[in-house]
């Protein structure tokens, strides 16, 4: 403090700024930490992401094969599974079914979440610099819009969870956390790449951006975010689970009073709930 005052009195503010930044640099070298975050730490997280996803996918397949091998009832409605899987993967029709607003927001959220990090021009520059090849780049304006959409959608999803009692009832702590955490690199990245907003915070924003991004990458294969590779298997796993042990699904349906409706019937027909359970009818359909 003492030296600061002296330098100010001697030659104005310029030296003071230089002096303070020098002192800050000694305390916490933001540049170096950012470099670490997108150098070795990024490689660690990215390798964990890729290998971890391959691992979880392989383990899931291995589990599926185990269950299928040990199940005495090997008849699965493959056509139905394929149709449902594709319907969920390409959510054009699913978008306007039960909760159109939520579905639309979720769709936009996913769109930005996948497209922006992969096709952002600045990220592609990093790829080019690091490994020598890169993906095609999004125009900056499109990337900006997508980023804002992701942040907005994340906030909407978060408040949707908080405000709706039905959603709150089935939410865990991590379910509240995820949309917020996912929005962090997008919000900080937006601020950092648009210095008009706040030119002074560039380093801080970049630091948060890089480390939040790394954290998310490393969390993907070990948390529910792994649905990015496991989602296509969910229909298969669900149907398989009804078969193990054999006839389990029918017994559950019987207990619930749905004996007439075999478990693999399409959703639309299940919704037409029969007035009274009729076990005979169920057997007829099964034949």
């Amino acid at each position: 403090m003492c030296r600061e005052r002296i330098s100010r009195s001697r030659s104005g503010t310029v030296e003071t700024v230089a002096f303070t930044s020098l002192r800050l640099k000694r305390r916490f070298d933001t540049e170096a930490w950012i470099e670490f975050g997108r150098g070795p730490l990024f490689r660690l997280c990215f390798a964990l992401l890729v290998l971890g996803l391959i691992r979880i996918l392989a383990l899931t397949w291995a589990g599926i094969f185990d269950v299928y091998r040990h199940s005495p009832d090997k008849i699965l409605p493959w056509k139905e599974i394929t149709k449902k899987t594709l319907a969920w993967l390409i959510p054009v029709r699913k978008l306007w079914t039960a909760r159109p607003v939520y579905s639309a927001i979720s769709f936009l959220f996913h769109l930005g979440l996948i497209l922006t990090p992969l096709f952002l021009a600045s990220h592609n520059l990093l790829w080019q610099k690091g490994v020598g090849f890169s993906l095609p780049s999004l125009p900056q304006r499109v990337a900006n819009i997508l980023t804002l959409l992701v942040v907005g959608a994340a906030l909407s999803i978060f408040f949707g969870r908080v405000l709706y009692p039905a959603a709150r009832a089935i939410s865990r702590a991590q379910d509240y956390l995820w949309p917020l955490l996912l929005a962090v690199p997008f919000a900080t990245g937006y601020v950092a790449s648009n210095p008009v907003i706040s030119p002074r915070t560039y380093e801080l924003m970049m630091l948060l951006h890089v480390y939040a991004g790394d954290l998310i990458l490393v969390m993907i294969p070990f948390t529910k975010l792994a649905h990015c590779v496991l989602a296509p298997l969910s229909q298969l796993v669900t149907h398989l689970a009804w078969k193990f042990p054999a006839g389990a699904g029918d017994r559950v349906a019987e207990t619930l009073g749905y004996a007439a409706m075999p478990t693999w019937l399409p959703q639309a027909r299940l919704r037409a709930r029969p007035e009274a359970p009729n076990p005979e009818q169920g057997q007829v359909i099964q034949k």
């Binding site: 150098g39 490689r43 660690l44 997280c45 990215f46 390798a47 290998l51 610099k129 490994v131 020598g132």
Partner: peptide
């Protein structure tokens, strides 16, 4: 396996292929 491989990847230097 995955943890060890990722750790080694993070230690690998970053050579340019270009």
């Amino acid at each position: 396996f995955v943890l060890a491989a990722a750790l080694a990847f993070s230690f690998l230097a970053n050579p340019k292929v270009e």
